[in-house]
Design a protein around this nucleic acid. Sequence first.
DNA 1: CAGTGGTCTAGACCACAGC
DNA 2: CTGTGGTCTAGACCACTGA
Lengths: 238, 238
Amino acid sequence: MAASLHQRIRGDIEDRIRSGTWPPGHRVPPEHELMAAYGCSRMTVNKALSLLADAGAIVRRRGAGSFVSTPHPHIESVALAIPDIAHEVASRGWRYAFRLVGRRLRAPRRRDAGEVELAGSGKLLALQGLHLADGRPIALEDRLIAVDAVPGAVTAAFDSEPPGSWLLQRVPWTRAEHRIGAAGADADAAALLEVEPGTACLVLDRRTWRGEQPVTRVRQRFRGDAYDLVAHFEPGLR
Amino acid sequence: MAASLHQRIRGDIEDRIRSGTWPPGHRVPPEHELMAAYGCSRMTVNKALSLLADAGAIVRRRGAGSFVSTPHPHIESVALAIPDIAHEVASRGWRYAFRLVGRRLRAPRRRDAGEVELAGSGKLLALQGLHLADGRPIALEDRLIAVDAVPGAVTAAFDSEPPGSWLLQRVPWTRAEHRIGAAGADADAAALLEVEPGTACLVLDRRTWRGEQPVTRVRQRFRGDAYDLVAHFEPGLR
DNA sequence: CAGTGGTCTAGACCACAGC
DNA sequence: CTGTGGTCTAGACCACTGA
């Protein structure tokens, strides 16, 4: 496991921050001191400190020095795991299955700017399906696929493999946007999810692009009693 | 705005990835080619590529080459902005206010392991308050503060400044965990949020530590019709 | 084997902060 | 002014990959 020198320097500093020995705002020794302490060149020290700064663990100010960061949650963001449902279900020890419950090839609704943009000059493949854990519905998925972007989709079955996985292997995306909210289940969704109408659901909307071309848009409604998303945050410490 | 050379190199590569010119899996030119192309030393090219690799935009394999990353959502995580409510409300052009509706200093419930751990050898300050946007309730907050960790909390007013902001300025945290779910409003919450009982709410649970010491635990229930969380993800592209 | 990236050196010049 | 970090050079040695 022989770590490189700049990794060791970085690790030593991270340890001091984690343990609280160097609290937020504390001054990190200047590069020339670390050079002497570790007996290495300035580039090596600089790399360790630059990476720490890049990760947000410290702040470097030219002419002034380097300082341990003070977290500031107004702007901070956290790493949220957006689950691949099949993977998530399997990791909890349940049997995963997908059931397709609806499928249409149609034109975009002209009122819905998002649909028009997604469709481009082509049509949309609209899919509806259920994600099941041990046979129990856990999430309802409504998906639109741009046929322009994914011609193969019209001939794919989707009767057991969820469209998300199918797409992933054929159309690698380069950009995604997620929106997370809560809403009561409408009558149709409630019936499919086997809950009372109005039951609170976690709603995850995801839009995906490849380059500038929109690829797919999906709304997944999770039974609120069965699903959580989890996020951790430590500023810049590995 | 004269960008440094390694930033320009990085930016040029990012542009090619973003535009799809270099799709996932595409081979990035080796360092010696980029040296020649930009007329610079290898360290400069190396810095650009290392930072891209660090950010996850490319994968570098010694002996093989550098390749544009293929996003892999099972494991990938996205940057989710966990909002400071006051800041968020203000940014939407509304008038923000906080109203304290409950306050108790009490012992932890012995059945709740989380409360016991939070309290340590001391008591808990339990606060309940409403976040208002233009006078309209937008979120209900139930918070526990470890008096051990924040002695000053027992004498603070919290009648207009939300406890989150107050804490932030006095107890910089080093680690946080968030859990996001959905649940129907119970009778009490519904009354305070001025919605029908059972209305779907987005539930955000946050636990915060300073070093190894737990500091506070808060549950914020947002009216599902009034609030969304948004996350973007582009693999490693600024 | 040749190609590629990972790391490191011992310098250098510059911009900026604070005294 | 001195001290600090930001950037860059022109080399070097090594470890690993794939043909």
